[in-house]
């Protein structure tokens, strides 16, 4: 029950009451965004128990993936390097 899921903010419904419409897997629901600063349409947030808990940092997300992929290519090179030995 501790899971939070990523959703896309599709509309700021009621700025005064900090409500935004967030879409998760095609399903939209109003989510309270008062725990975050500067939530805009189009950004991704992690939601839990009706509240957005954090904004997903796209740059960081790409960085994580880049590191993973880099390791992948490093490994190919390593394999080539290793097989070149015999």
């Amino acid at each position: 029950m501790c899971l939070a899921i990523p959703g896309k903010v599709v509309e700021i419904v009621d700025p005064e009451n900090h409500l935004a419409k967030v879409e998760v897997g095609g399903v939209k629901r109003n989510i309270n965004i008062s725990l975050l600063d500067a939530v805009e349409e189009g950004c991704y947030v992690l939601i839990h128990a009706g509240f957005a808990l954090s904004k997903i940092d796209e740059r960081e997300a790409e960085e994580t993936l880049r590191l993973l992929q880099e390791m992948d290519s490093y490994e190919e090179e390593f394999d080539q390097y290793r097989s070149s030995l015999d």
Partner: peptide, 18 residues
């Protein structure tokens, strides 16, 4: 921190304040 896309070193200050 492997989960940098969602977790900041100081967490969420508004949530902590609440």
């Amino acid at each position: 921190n492997q989960y940098g896309r969602a977790v900041a070193r100081d967490g969420n200050p508004k949530a902590l304040r609440a």
